[in-house]
Simulated scan of single mutants.
Amino acid sequence: MKLSQHLLTTAMIVLSALLVACNQQDKQQQVQHNPVAFHSADECHVCGMAITRFPGPKGQAINAQGKVKKFCSSAEMLNWWLQPENQVSASAIYVHDMSQGSWDKPDDGHLIEAQLAYYVVAPDMPGSMGTPIASFADQQAAELFAADRKTTVMNFSQLKDALLQQQLSSAAQHADHQHMNH
């Protein structure tokens, strides 16, 4: 009887140690996923353009090994991320909080998780590739920005759906154009 009690106690100690080790490993992995600053030598992962030469929010994706892919705009990063293979390979994605810093020079100290941001499509603002999409940590800041543009605020899920719909519409237009030319 004492032997089984000793084995049970030992098993509980080992299990507790494993749980602590797993928790510490999770924290170490989270540290690897922190966003990094953009530098003048950085080039967009998709188009190869010099990222810091353009105004507006930027984006970055970080994989499980901590490798960072940087993008010249949040829109470029989000369109890249919509590809299923990129959703699997990118364990964390970040965008600038545009309520911090300026449109011409977003503040790299305020990169936020893309899935938690609020978005406003901003075709009237300068940017790099495609229509700029402003990102905000705070919904009220996003609503003020949207009100100035007479548009709406979207959360990540809504923006993802809108971008997918836009991609489908573009693909259908391309297919119609191809069909008409043959």
Rank of each mutant, 00 (worst) to 15 (best):
E43V: 08
L19A: 06
V68N: 12
M1S: 15
H96K: 02
G109T: 11
A90E: 06
L82W: 01
M12R: 13
P123N: 08
A61Q: 12
A114C: 12
S169Y: 04
D176E: 13
F156K: 05
A162G: 01
A134S: 11
G127R: 08
Q29C: 01
I13F: 02
P55Q: 06
L78H: 14
F71Y: 15
M180H: 15
L168D: 14
Q158V: 05
A17S: 15
V31A: 12
A17W: 01
N155P: 03
D138M: 01
V31L: 11
A134W: 03
Y119C: 02
Q178I: 06
C47L: 04
V68W: 07
P35S: 04
D138N: 11
M129D: 12
D108N: 14
H39W: 04
C22K: 11
N181V: 03
N86R: 11
E113G: 00
L8A: 13
N79I: 00
S99V: 00
E43Q: 11
C22D: 10
D176P: 00
P35D: 05
V46S: 12
G56T: 05
F145W: 12
D107A: 10
N34F: 02
Q65M: 08
Q140K: 09
F71S: 09
M129Q: 13
D124C: 04
P132L: 02
L3K: 12
I133V: 15
F156N: 12
S169I: 04
K160H: 04
V31R: 11
G48V: 06
L163G: 10
M129T: 12
V36L: 11
K67W: 03
A171V: 01
K69L: 14
A37C: 03
L3Q: 13
A141N: 07
A122D: 10
M98P: 07
C72Q: 09
A90T: 09
W81C: 00
D107S: 10
T152Q: 14
P84D: 08
H110D: 06
S99N: 02
Q24L: 13
H182N: 13
A162K: 14
E113T: 03
M12Y: 03
A146V: 07
